[in-house]
Design a protein around this nucleic acid. Structure first.
Lengths: 222, 222
DNA sequence: GCAAATATAATAGTATTACTATCAAATAAA
DNA sequence: TTTATTTGATAGTAATACTATTATATTTGC
């Protein structure tokens, strides 16, 4: 077992991939493959090949590619939340915590050696490139009931609570942080691929400053 | 010919659908079908059936489903820009223009009778549900060079210029408006499907207030 | 240590999708 | 009215997203 375990809803897999060696290889290789060739071009057959096993084996762990992506993205948000909780212990003001949260959303991730089968840096790039695809479907309502988006919602709540500590009268904490988290992802994507949609020429610090200003200016009492 | 024509880059179609009756039926029915059953579940075969023609006919106008979606979404942003330009003529301050722009992004659209083959209200709902899918692909760089995202970029520019009229020192006009436009879409989606990610219980006015505050507070000199 | 249960590998097969190609009939343009 | 263009009808192909089956490992419970 791992020193650290990120819990992901049991509805997000057929058979828990964290419990077997093959399962971990599926996670590790599908992160790699999806980041490299893009979600649309990945098939369970290709994953089977990459893990030196078969398509059928992958199906034993995940019902389909969409569920696998949802698993990985949930894992990422869950892991980010743990990271934030750890770092928040050292910080004393809600404002500092929010600033640090924005940094964690945008700065590249180092690998966590406690979890050798997941490369957090690659996973972060995968999330930047694919995350809205897990909810932009006609199945969203059914999947929402299955808990497909729990970790994302929890993260928004957590940050929203910090905002209310700064200004208890702020009316839009959930909207603000779903916007900020989403903007953190898309600004990273835009600086790389559609630079005219951002003002941060490949400079993560500028993205952080933009988001931090936007967040704090929105919350502030006036 | 139409009284009003929204121009869409010629790279977004094989054969211009605005020029023939069949082409217009393709546009009209694919908006309907995609909004109704979701992008993933639409096929050219189904569109062919819906327009009482064949799969092959649809392929004569669009290379594939992705290009068709890109066409429709570009058409939407192009049309919104025209709408905004019309309304801005009546308004005298940059702030009023920005406020109105946010409203146009969020309020439901009435049909424009000058363009009978496009139902703008349905198209708007389609854009809310699908727009990031046109750039979240591995082909984004190639498609960007083909002009797949021009109308979106132009819209962000236009609004960014208004922001600079309010505060010429504001450093992030492009980032801000790509964020605001994107948030306008996703907040509409969240209030309907993932309400815990917003604070606007099915109330478009609340979304507008949230976005307007966020925008103006970000720009303001302080 | 052995029987029973479970996990995996290898393979086959099906329906659907995303196209490409062909050709004749209809329509429009010169 | 000849010629070109557009459409309709049909066929075909490779890939995808699965489901099913069976033999062989591997693990677990007793």
């Amino acid at each position: 077992m791992n020193a650290l375990n990120i819990s992901v809803s049991a509805k997000l897999y057929n058979k828990n991939p964290e419990e077997t060696d093959l399962g971990k290889r599926i996670l590790s290789k599908s992160i790699e493959l999806m980041e490299e060739m893009g979600y649309e071009h990945v098939t369970f057959k290709k994953i089977g090949l990459a893990i030196e096993s078969t398509e059928a084996s992958v199906y034993r762990y995940f019902q389909n590619k969409h569920q696998l992506l949802a698993y990985l993205i949930n894992w990422y948000w869950g892991w980010l939340e743990v990271k934030m909780a750890q770092e928040f212990m050292m910080l004393n003001s809600a404002e500092d915590k929010l600033k640090r949260a924005v940094e964690l959303l945008v700065l590249p991730m180092d690998e966590d050696e406690r979890i050798p089968h997941i490369d957090e840096g690659t996973l972060q790039r995968l999330v930047v490139a694919e995350y809205p695809k897990i909810y932009l479907t006609k199945e969203v309502d059914a999947e929402n009931e299955e808990g497909y988006f729990l970790s994302y919602k929890r993260l928004c709540d957590t940050l929203g609570i910090l905002a209310l500590q700064i200004n208890p009268d702020y009316k839009y904490p959930h909207s603000l942080f779903s916007t900020v988290i989403s903007a953190a992802q898309s600004q990273q994507f835009f600086t790389e691929h559609l630079p005219r949609l951002s003002d941060a020429a490949n400079d993560r610090r500028a993205i952080i400053e933009f988001l931090t200003e936007m967040t704090l200016n929105s919350i502030q009492k006036r």
